[in-house]
Amino acid sequence: MEGLKVSDANLVVFLHPSKSNRVSKAVLHELSSHLFQFSEIFDGVLLAYDVDIVDRNAKLLSGIHPYIGVRLKAKLLLFSPKPNMLIEGNVVKLTPESIHVIVLGFASAVIIDEDVREEFEYRTKHGKEVYRSKAHRRHVIEVGTMVRFLVKSLDREILHICGSLEPSNTGSIHWLDQNFGELSLIDRSGTKRERENEMKMQEHAVVGGEEISLGNDQSKKSKKRRLREES
C-alpha cells in the first residue's frame, strides 16, 4: 500500500533537567507523544520509531532551566496519505450511503455513495449488508473485507480520510488480487495493440518488479502498474 515510508531523521530532543537521570526513558516518552498525530515536520503520521542516541554528550540550553539537548538518529515509520494515493483498509460498516473503512487500525476513512462507482450496488442479504459488483458477481464488499481505495482528502487533525472507489483498480483486495488479469481484459476492451502493450508491461513488471515499486508519481501511472505494485 502507498503512503507508508521509512525516514531517517536526525533529531535533537530537549529534555527538562529533572529528566537527566532517565534520559533514554525521557527520549522515548517525548517521541511517543508524537505517535498517531499528524506532524507538519515529518509530513505524516508517526507510526513507529527506532532510535539511537548518537552522542553521550548533550548540549545544554542555557536558561532558568538548563534543558539538555540530546542528539538522536532515528528511523521513523511515517504514514502520509496524499490525494490520489491508493491505500488499504478494513471495512467496518456499510450503509446505503457510505462505506466506513479503518486504515492501519487507527485512521478512519469514509467513501460516500457518490464516490462508489456505479458498478457496485448496495444490497441486504439475510440481514447482512453488502456492496456487490453488478459486473463481477463475486466482487463483494462486506464488513470485514479489506478494500483498496483512492484517497480524496485527509483531515489532518483527526486523521479522517475521504476515499473513493471510482477507479476500477479499487475494491476488495482479495478479489482484485485474484482477478486483475481478467479485469484488465474485460475493462480495457480497447484495441489489440493496447492489449499487447499491457502484456508487455506485465512481463516487464515480472522482470523488474522491484524497481517499479520505487516510483512515486502515481497519477501518471497506468492502472495496471498500480495494481502490480500493490500485489
Binding site: 450511503e97 469514509v110 483531515d155
Partner: peptide, 12 residues
C-alpha cells in the same frame, strides 16, 4: 453516529 463518521470536522 453517521455525522461523526462522515467527516473529521464533525467528530468533536
Amino acid at each position: 453516529i453517521s455525522l461523526a463518521a462522515s467527516s473529521g470536522k464533525f467528530v468533536d
